[in-house]
């Protein structure tokens, strides 16, 4: 049976950028464990001979011509922004490097 520990939930929350409180972690970990147990039944059910389906309808090659279409105005683009400066989105200081 798969095991999802509190520490693992904390790590996943970190990966998903959610600042879970201790109380939330306590609450969530056992719930996730129950869900995980219920979905674990499918492990090993389909072998290598079964292809994976990522998309229900088999389609390929859907392209767009390289023709410019109207963009939003900067006002529209920035209309929902929590903070704007010099027509740019103002964001708090960034700690990590670009990838």
């Amino acid at each position: 049976m798969p095991e999802i520990t509190r520490d693992e939930v904390a790590h996943l929350a970190d990966l998903a950028r959610i600042d879970l409180s201790d109380a939330e972690l306590d609450h969530l970990a056992p719930q996730l464990q129950v869900i995980l147990e219920s979905v674990a039944s499918i492990q090993g059910l389909a072998g290598d001979d079964v292809p994976a389906t990522s998309h229900p309808l088999p389609m390929t090659n859907v392209f767009r011509e390289d023709v410019v279409t109207p963009s939003l105005t900067p006002e529209q683009a920035l209309s929902g922004a929590p903070s704007v400066e010099e027509q740019r989105f103002a964001v708090p200081r960034i700690l990590g490097d670009e990838q």
Partner: peptide, 27 residues
Amino acid sequence: SAEDVMKASRDAGFGDEVKRRIILGTY
């Protein structure tokens, strides 16, 4: 930092079920 703000906002902005599914999907 931006990361702190992301984490705090996502904690405050999402409800329990959404968080459950995000964590499950991340896993």
